Amino acid sequence: MELQNQISARTLKVWRIIGFLECLITWIITIAVLVLTIIFDWTPWIIGGMIVLSVIQPYLGIYLLPLIKWRRFRYEVRETEIEIQRGIFVIKRTLIPMIRVQHVETNQGPFLRKYDLASVEVSTAATVHTIPALDLQEADELRQYISKMASVEEEDV
């Protein structure tokens, strides 16, 4: 059964900006390694490897991986449980019973804030589960709903 809810399409912009910044760091490291290779007369395969990495990483990190990650991420919040599906090559599905939820919060970093997005973090005793980059209003409503359902479940126990 396919989960119904998907994160915001604006998430792609945020993840692509982050991918571009990661590529910039790689390019800086590549330039430094190339300079060191020339200075210390290291083997030429280092230059080739760094150039190949500098060409492949932008395609993967800016275009392909964010698109696959966005398409595969799904979630569904029901009265008794939260189900999250994520992954790029290996798809993982997590089921979180509402009675295990300890608290719920929304987070916004600078990139998410620019695009009016927020992540919802659901904390249990064991770990924190994240639903990344929802529209800000949707994230607030989801936080309120999960909080209400989790407290109702705790009262019934």
Rank of each mutant, 00 (worst) to 15 (best):
Q6M: 11
I7N: 08
A9V: 15
T11K: 05
L12T: 07
K13I: 12
K13D: 06
K13A: 11
W15L: 01
R16C: 04
R16I: 00
F20T: 06
F20I: 01
L21E: 03
L24F: 08
L24V: 11
I25R: 11
W27A: 10
L34I: 11
L36S: 12
I39Y: 13
F40I: 10
W42F: 15
W42M: 14
T43K: 15
T43L: 14
P44S: 13
I47V: 15
I47D: 13
M50N: 08
M50L: 11
I51W: 04
V52N: 04
V52M: 09
S54K: 09
S54Y: 09
I56L: 14
Q57D: 10
Y59I: 15
L60E: 04
I62W: 03
I62A: 04
Y63T: 08
P66K: 05
K69N: 11
R71M: 07
R71F: 05
R72A: 06
F73K: 02
F73D: 00
F73M: 07
R74F: 06
V77E: 01
V77K: 02
R78Q: 12
E81W: 02
E81H: 03
Q85T: 04
V90Y: 04
I91A: 00
R93W: 06
T94D: 06
T94P: 00
T94S: 05
I96E: 02
P97R: 03
P97I: 00
M98T: 04
M98A: 06
V101I: 06
V101N: 00
V101C: 02
Q102F: 02
Q102G: 07
H103S: 09
V104L: 01
N107P: 07
N107D: 12
Q108S: 13
Q108E: 10
F111M: 14
F111V: 12
R113T: 15
R113G: 12
R113W: 12
L117M: 09
A118M: 09
V120N: 02
E121G: 05
V122W: 04
T124N: 05
V128R: 14
H129L: 08
P132E: 02
A133W: 00
L134S: 04
L136G: 03
Q137N: 13
Q137Y: 12
E138N: 08
Q144N: 14
Y145E: 13
I146N: 02
K148F: 10
K148W: 08
M149P: 03
M149W: 02
S151Y: 08
D156A: 15
D156I: 15
V157R: 13
